[in-house]
Simulated scan of single mutants.
Amino acid sequence: MPGDARGLPSHDKDLPLRDMDVPVRASLLRGLSALITGAGGQGESFLAGYGVDEGEAATSGEAFMSLRVGERILEDVARRFGIPDLGLRMAAQQDLHVLGPLAIAMENSRTVGDAIECASRFLGLLSPALSHAVIPDPLENPGLLGIRYASTTGNASPQALDYGIGMVHRVVTLVSGGPYGLRSVQMPHPRLGPDAAYREYFGAEIAYDCPHAVLRVPRQLMEVPVSGGNDLLRDIALDFLQSRFGHRDVPVSHLVLAVLQGQHGADRSDLAKVARILNLHQRSLQRLLAREGVAFKDLVDRVRRDQTLGLITNTDLPFSQIAVQVGLREQSSLTRAVRRWFGMAPSALRSVGSDGVGDAGE
């Protein structure tokens, strides 16, 4: 099933060009190949027929495709391979970090309401066609609110809407720390698969053929704290998002520093782990840092230096233990690093304290 230059299968010429101008991140198709294969198809070759390389989509945060082509793929897969609840299955297996820095900002929000507001502001990171908002309860219950998911292009495909509202449900569940009192779900299309599949996924009553895709939730949900949030990491992630949408240079190095400061021991210097946390391919992360004139190893060294200074001057820990905590293999490595940073041995640094360092470490 070869595709044309626009990414359409050769037999499918009925999508107007104006619909092709709306991009969506190809990473949203992660895991689709496995679902096709599990249903007896050949996932990679099926997607390749649409011009989609799922391997590239899974590792590149910069790959885009037409929203309409993505929707057509979901509808074709559901029909051809007999997976009527495909959208829900895609949402169930998707990693929250497909949202990239938006996931970091949401996970570190102060309240569930803050996290939802953040998603509403920056959902365009995935596609300018996606819309997400808190609205009054569609059934006018004063104790409830609605969380609405929609496509701004109109006439969104049913499978794509199931996928989208399914992801919203997963995100709210994660930032809430578990079940959040979902009262019911409204779907803007007829039931696609067994009603039991929808009830099992959402754990609530489902209404079909409604005006919009909406989660009806308790009003007090907006004030529920997000556990384990980090204000610094949230602020840096928001700066990242605001800078990106403002078309200014993105301070990726600041975000990397925040991640490194939260790691310990040898794991700190693991580029692959940091890239995974930021939902970037290793090479993409290295390129972004290079544009800012900094290398990953230099950021590791900066964090290691600052934490070593604090541990030596503010604690009585043995130098061998400090070496392990900052990710150095042995005490001799710590001694060489401290001499390079501060121009003195660890014992001398402990004697003079941080005030005695002066400009030696700059």
Results as ranks from 00 to 15, higher is better:
L144P: 00
L311Q: 09
A119W: 08
L174G: 00
V22F: 04
A272Y: 08
M106V: 06
A26K: 01
V22I: 02
P128Q: 05
M65H: 07
R350D: 09
A48Q: 12
L29M: 12
L288I: 00
V352F: 04
L28P: 00
S243M: 10
H11K: 00
Y149T: 14
D85L: 01
A115E: 05
L125R: 14
G82D: 13
I312Y: 09
V300L: 08
A160M: 11
V338S: 01
Q159V: 02
R287N: 14
G293V: 03
I206Y: 10
R79T: 11
D270H: 13
L145H: 00
L32Q: 01
L334W: 10
N155G: 05
G40T: 08
V326Q: 09
L144C: 10
R283S: 12
R234H: 14
G265W: 08
H247S: 09
L74Y: 11
E330H: 12
Q93H: 09
S127E: 02
L317A: 12
V300K: 02
H189Y: 15
S227K: 15
G177L: 03
A207K: 14
A5L: 01
T308F: 02
Q286G: 07
D21N: 06
R305W: 01
D12I: 08
T315D: 10
V352C: 14
E200F: 08
F64W: 11
L311C: 07
G51R: 00
E200C: 08
L317G: 00
L102R: 05
V134Q: 09
I116H: 05
D209C: 15
M222K: 12
A63I: 02
A258Q: 07
E56G: 15
H189Q: 14
L233M: 13
R248W: 08
G43F: 12
V69E: 04
H254R: 14
R248Q: 13
D114E: 15
L311M: 14
H264P: 02
E107R: 13
L102P: 00
R183H: 13
P16K: 03
E44W: 07
A26G: 15
T308G: 10
D355H: 09
G178T: 12
G166H: 01
R287C: 02
D53K: 01
G70M: 01
A213E: 12
T173Q: 12
V300Y: 06
D231I: 11
K13Y: 03
P179Q: 11
A119M: 15
P211V: 13
R268F: 03
K13M: 05
D249N: 06
A258K: 03
L311N: 07
V112D: 06
G203T: 01
S351V: 01
V338Y: 02
L299Q: 12
V98C: 04
L15R: 04
P138D: 09
H132G: 04
G361W: 11
N230Q: 10
R170S: 04
R199H: 12
P9A: 10
C210D: 09
V98E: 08
A197V: 14
A91R: 02
A348I: 05
A258T: 08
L238S: 06
A129F: 04
V214S: 06
E107Q: 13
V52F: 13
